[in-house]
Simulated assay, not measured.
Amino acid sequence: MFGLSELAIILIVLIAVLAAKKLPDLARSAGKSAHILKAEARAIKEAENAGKATGAGRGEGSGEAPAPRVIRGEAVARDTTGGGGENGGQRA
């Protein structure tokens, strides 16, 4: 019978044969994703280093919590008429 490594090789070859048209696109998108991930990790590291350099007395060591992140959103008007909506104006 086949062992686990032989089955894995057969599966890889089968996928390569059946998905030969899509593999270059998949590899390209995986490379772009890895590049973006590395850039973001580098930016976070630089931001942490810059934060430590500028705010020497603040942060984890001084007992102060870092400032919360503000995510700007969009204001949406609420429907106060009681009609319509997902459940036909009835409260759940």
Rank of each mutant, 00 (worst) to 15 (best):
M1C: 09
M1D: 09
F2R: 12
F2G: 08
F2S: 14
G3V: 05
G3H: 00
G3F: 08
L4V: 05
L4C: 07
L4A: 13
E6S: 13
L7R: 09
A8Q: 13
I9S: 15
I9W: 02
I10G: 12
L11N: 15
L11G: 14
L11I: 10
L11W: 14
I12N: 08
I12F: 07
V13G: 05
L14V: 09
L14Q: 02
I15M: 01
A16V: 03
A16F: 04
A16Q: 03
A19M: 09
A19N: 10
A19W: 07
A20S: 08
A20C: 05
A20E: 07
A20F: 14
K21V: 09
K21I: 08
K21M: 06
L23N: 04
P24T: 03
P24N: 03
P24V: 00
L26T: 04
L26S: 01
L26G: 07
A27F: 09
A27Q: 07
A27H: 08
R28K: 15
R28F: 12
S29F: 15
S29L: 08
A30C: 07
A30T: 06
S33W: 02
S33H: 03
S33T: 08
S33Q: 07
S33A: 11
H35F: 12
I36W: 14
L37S: 14
K38G: 13
A39E: 15
A39M: 12
E40G: 05
E40A: 06
A41D: 15
A41V: 13
R42H: 09
R42N: 10
A43I: 04
A43R: 08
A43Q: 05
I44H: 10
K45W: 11
K45V: 06
E46W: 11
E46N: 10
E46R: 01
A47H: 02
A47Y: 06
E48F: 12
E48Q: 14
E48Y: 00
E48W: 10
N49F: 08
A50N: 10
A50I: 11
A50S: 09
G51V: 05
G51M: 08
G51E: 09
A53P: 01
T54W: 11
T54E: 15
G55F: 12
G55E: 08
A56I: 13
A56H: 07
A56P: 00
G57C: 00
R58A: 15
G59H: 02
E64N: 09
E64P: 01
E64V: 05
E64S: 12
A65C: 06
A65T: 10
A65F: 10
A65D: 11
P68I: 01
R69Y: 09
R69M: 11
R69L: 14
V70L: 07
I71M: 06
R72L: 02
G73A: 02
G73M: 00
E74S: 05
E74A: 05
A75L: 10
A75S: 11
V76I: 15
V76W: 01
A77L: 14
R78S: 02
R78W: 03
R78I: 06
D79T: 00
D79R: 04
D79Q: 04
D79F: 00
G82Q: 03
G82C: 02
G82Y: 02
G83I: 03
G83E: 03
G84C: 00
G85A: 03
G85R: 01
E86L: 04
E86D: 08
G89N: 01
G89L: 03
G89C: 00
Q90I: 01
R91E: 04
R91G: 06
R91Q: 01
A92L: 12
A92P: 08
